[in-house]
Design a protein around this nucleic acid. Structure first.
Lengths: 152, 152
DNA sequence: ACTCAACGTTTACATTTGTCAACTCAAAAA
DNA sequence: TTTTTGAGTTGACAAATGTAAACGTTGAGT
């Protein structure tokens, strides 16, 4: 992956970068100055730090810049929902397949969701239930070694 | 945080470390040899690499060791579900509060869940719906700046 | 025309993470 | 007893990440 590559590394957003991306996604497009001041109201980061993060985000293909006067206007190069989906899936890939459901239950129990979020979730679950398997096997051990799994 | 600290860094499990932890959690307790051979059936990592990861996991307080003969028996120092929960919450903390529901919908749609997982999810949702707010506000911008939010 | 403030660019540096090779020791085998 | 081998320990190193100072350029104000 050379520096000329404009490959989007959507699956590689660091925590610090998420914070900036959220602002960009929410505002649609922002100038660095605005970004910096908004960011500094949430985190105690220096201007420099933020500029560096911005530069890296552009390199990673997550932000686009448009020169306007002397300054740059930043806009997201990837959809917020897309980034969220990729990241969430990535995380769940690390979890034992057998325990993903429980993790979701705990997560949902902990999150604040709106009435309509809940309705959408119920809808997708109803649909999913029609073809859901009776059980999902643990996939923590190498292929063909499932018998050894002590999963409770 | 000095090296003598045995503080459990449960919120700081790297991808490579997850792979090892999964094996430990699934098997309950394992000797490094077994761990290494199981791991090598999934990843092309050298013995050394795995030993290093193991060492770091012990340092982080995620694995416990028990000397038996010359070798160590490794056991998880934290519960799998606990680690999963913490990690999942951490991830969702990075996402716009307003779009967490949609992300969950997409995630659930993509995961393979068992009948009972789905039932548990439906149960928790039914319960949650009773007190769920009508809407959840975007929390991407600094406090008191919500009005500026362009969230769709 | 001169100076300063605002922006972007370069450098820098400590940590963390992914990956290993080399080394030490004692148990096991020859 | 000498050798081999399996386990754990050290040292290394590059890339990624968090953080930030210093520097260069140019438009705006004096």
């Amino acid at each position: 992956m050379d520096s000329t590559s404009t490959q989007t590394k959507i699956d590689d957003i660091t925590p610090a970068e998420w914070e900036l991306m959220r602002i960009v996604w929410t505002k649609g497009s922002v100038y660095s100055r605005e970004l910096i001041s908004l960011m500094q109201q949430k985190r105690d980061w220096s201007d420099s730090t933020i500029k560096t993060l911005l530069r890296r985000l552009v390199q990673k293909g997550l932000l686009n810049t448009e020169k306007e006067d002397r300054k740059f206007k930043y806009t997201a190069a990837v959809e917020e929902i897309k980034a969220m989906d990729v990241t969430a899936r990535q995380l769940f890939d690390h979890l034992c397949a057998m325990k993903r459901g429980q993790t979701l239950v705990n997560l949902i129990d902990h999150l604040e969701l709106s009435q309509s979020d809940i309705e959408s979730l119920q809808a997708v679950l109803t649909e999913k239930k029609k073809t859901a398997p009776e059980t999902v096997k643990c996939d923590c051990l190498p292929e063909g070694m499932d018998e050894t799994c002590d999963c409770n």
